[in-house]
Design a protein around this nucleic acid. Sequence first.
DNA 1: AAATTTTCGACTAAATTAGTCAAATGTTTC
DNA 2: GAAACATTTGACTAATTTAGTCGAAAATTT
Lengths: 194, 194
Amino acid sequence: MPEGTKDIRDQIIESAVKIFARYGLRKATMEDIAKANNRAKSSLYHYFSSKEDIFKAVIKREGNILKSEILNAIAREKLPTDKLRTYFKARMNALNRLANVYSAFQDEYLENYKFIQKFRSQFDSFEIETIKSILKQGIEKKIFEIDDLDLTAFTIVVGMKGLEYHWATEKDIKKLNRNIDTLFDLLFNGIKRR
Amino acid sequence: MPEGTKDIRDQIIESAVKIFARYGLRKATMEDIAKANNRAKSSLYHYFSSKEDIFKAVIKREGNILKSEILNAIAREKLPTDKLRTYFKARMNALNRLANVYSAFQDEYLENYKFIQKFRSQFDSFEIETIKSILKQGIEKKIFEIDDLDLTAFTIVVGMKGLEYHWATEKDIKKLNRNIDTLFDLLFNGIKRR
DNA sequence: AAATTTTCGACTAAATTAGTCAAATGTTTC
DNA sequence: GAAACATTTGACTAATTTAGTCGAAAATTT
């Protein structure tokens, strides 16, 4: 695909996000996406090879937004402690903002797709690495005391996943933020240098 | 359909509400509804003759809920003035609560169905009659002064529809409630006995 | 105005879906 | 307990929808 084409590809992706968010991969049709973009269905195939191809692009885009939101948020903090707490909240907020796309993303039907599994595991890696780098800084600054860095980072990510599940069904944002703080404090007091 | 059958019919309608709310009439499949009800698709046809038939039942049910919520709300008020204001708010709140179903209901694709048009016009009649009865009480109690009752009731309903349209795109509930009050005051000062 | 990119409508093969049906299972009634 | 009835189901089909193709028309660039 040529150069200036980027804009229209992006346009299509943007429409597709909404359609996928509303209907999920299965029920969203190329016709739906095309209409939302004021184009004929066949035009889409000039930019993407298949519906799955568009979906991949959507997932990639939303994933990148999620990652950069998290990275930006923790970049604003100086202390590893604050970075960690901010990471928690930024993750929840970003996920909250993406709630629609995300709920489509949770669709069990998607689990069968290999590229979704790949994306998930890539995102897991990103999270573990990010947490690890925060923990490392904490160790260097003598704020944290951790035996097994990998295992600790992994455990933290798993813990957040648990919270995320709870979050999916929790409407009370206030209560949720308190949960985040509680989990954080519990974790923090476990790893803080005594 | 036999007698004790009612329970299961209702069960099916309840599942169907959720499915229609999520996907709309077009994209909701009998299979979806059946699954949500832990039944085989063919079982549904024992209780309903078609998908459209289920949809009609859903619309009827939600319409009745809407009506009774409104009627209950205004029954709690004594003064015609308060009844009118309460009507406004109850209508908005009920519609708000039914937001999902309602958004599916707004689908342009539905406009082609005759029974939807029929339902709409029946609901319009209900609203106009309800408003008229409130206005009548107001006139009797010398609180309102109205020339053409029918035309006034009609105008009020049309006004609320306009607000409803605005509401559909307005996320700020606070602002919306202020709008309701404003519209109400404007209207009220127009019909109040001087 | 030639070359290239973009759009589109018409088309097809494959998949999905509404609705049917006959048989299986479950429940009542005598 | 078996006849009568109600309910559920899986297999099936006809009709519709849908992903993806293709050749040619617009639009844009060179």
